[in-house]
């Protein structure tokens, strides 16, 4: 490991406190984790506000008609963050909230990574990293061919973008001038083993995406209002967009925050769950 200071403090330190919806969605994540007795908790909790704003304010989708042709496509390319996606899909009525209790059970449709065709609202089976953006490129290109105004959103992790395939996809998105494609990076700055700065430093990250032909926006990934504004203002004609969301891994569950040991967790004691729920209760 290279000996470098740990830049774990997010660039935007002033995130507003979690509001009641953000706390509720986190409780849903915990509920699924309790049911499955495991889960990528850290990787899911950094995603909550990103997915919340997409599902609440941005995506044109129909929970009662998940395959509606005119919908926007949203791929969670970092499939290990699926607890956050499941919480949102359940909350939006794509499937009953009680299904969260079956997470990772033998007969459940909610696996440790999301699968298209099994879970209503899941656009692509992910879990192997570095696949989602290419699929999103294909979907965005298809929308152009069909003269549809559907947009494609692909949410990736900061460890995931180590994969070379991601950068193959960025070049292709720029070549085809896919202004209907938005890449979203959950930049929590911790990958499985440790800080991204130590495992594989992707900085200067914004410059990289810019150099690969994207319009780049940066935002506090836990600031709901800022995310709403950012996602609504994107799209420069002829260019795909990248939104780098500065987040905190494990956000909202203190022992998990900025702690690589909480990338994936199993066997969490009931007392500890109780503590987490208490911290995330309604005020």
């Amino acid at each position: 490991m290279i000996d470098r200071p740990l830049p774990l403090v997010p660039i935007y330190p002033g995130s507003p406190p979690l509001d009641s919806r953000s706390r509720y969605l986190r409780r849903l994540v915990l509920r699924a984790m309790e049911g499955g007795e495991r889960g990528h908790i850290g990787s899911s909790l950094s995603l909550i506000e990103i997915l919340r704003v997409l599902f609440d304010d941005i995506l044109r989708i129909r929970a009662d008609e998940p395959n509606w042709d005119g919908r926007d496509r949203c791929i969670l390319s970092k499939g290990h963050g699926c607890l956050a996606l499941y919480a949102l899909l359940a909350d939006k009525g794509f499937f009953p909230v009680a299904e969260l209790d079956t997470f990772c059970h033998f007969g459940s449709f909610l696996g440790g990574h999301p699968e298209r065709g099994k879970i209503p609202g899941v656009e692509a089976s992910t879990g192997a990293l570095g696949h989602g953006l290419s699929i999103g490129v294909g979907q965005a290109l298809a929308a152009k061919l069909k003269k549809s105004d559907s947009r494609s959103f692909v949410v990736m992790g900061d460890g995931e973008i180590n994969e070379g395939s991601v950068w193959e996809a960025t070049m292709t998105a720029a070549k085809h001038r896919l202004d209907n494609l938005t890449a979203i990076i959950d930049y929590n700055k911790l990958q499985s083993y440790g800080p991204t700065r130590q495992v594989l430093d992707m900085e200067p990250l914004a410059d990289k995406w810019r150099a690969f032909g994207f319009t780049v926006l940066e935002v506090d990934g836990h600031d709901v209002a800022a995310l709403q504004t950012t996602f609504k203002t994107i799209s420069e004609p002829g260019k795909p967009t990248a939104v780098i969301c500065h987040t905190i891994k494990g956000k909202g569950v203190l022992p998990a925050e900025n702690n690589p040991e909480w990338h994936h967790k199993s066997r969490i004691a009931p007392e500890q769950f109780a503590e987490f729920y208490k911290a995330l209760e309604e005020n």
Binding site: A124, L133, I135, V137, G138, A142, S165, T172, K175
Partner: peptide, 20 residues
């Protein structure tokens, strides 16, 4: 497309998902 087979296959998958 370029010399980028991984992306080519993913892109083909996305196009096929949309009916092509």
């Amino acid at each position: 497309e370029g010399v980028a087979e991984q992306n080519l296959i993913g892109m083909a998958a996305g196009l096929a998902m949309e009916g092509f």
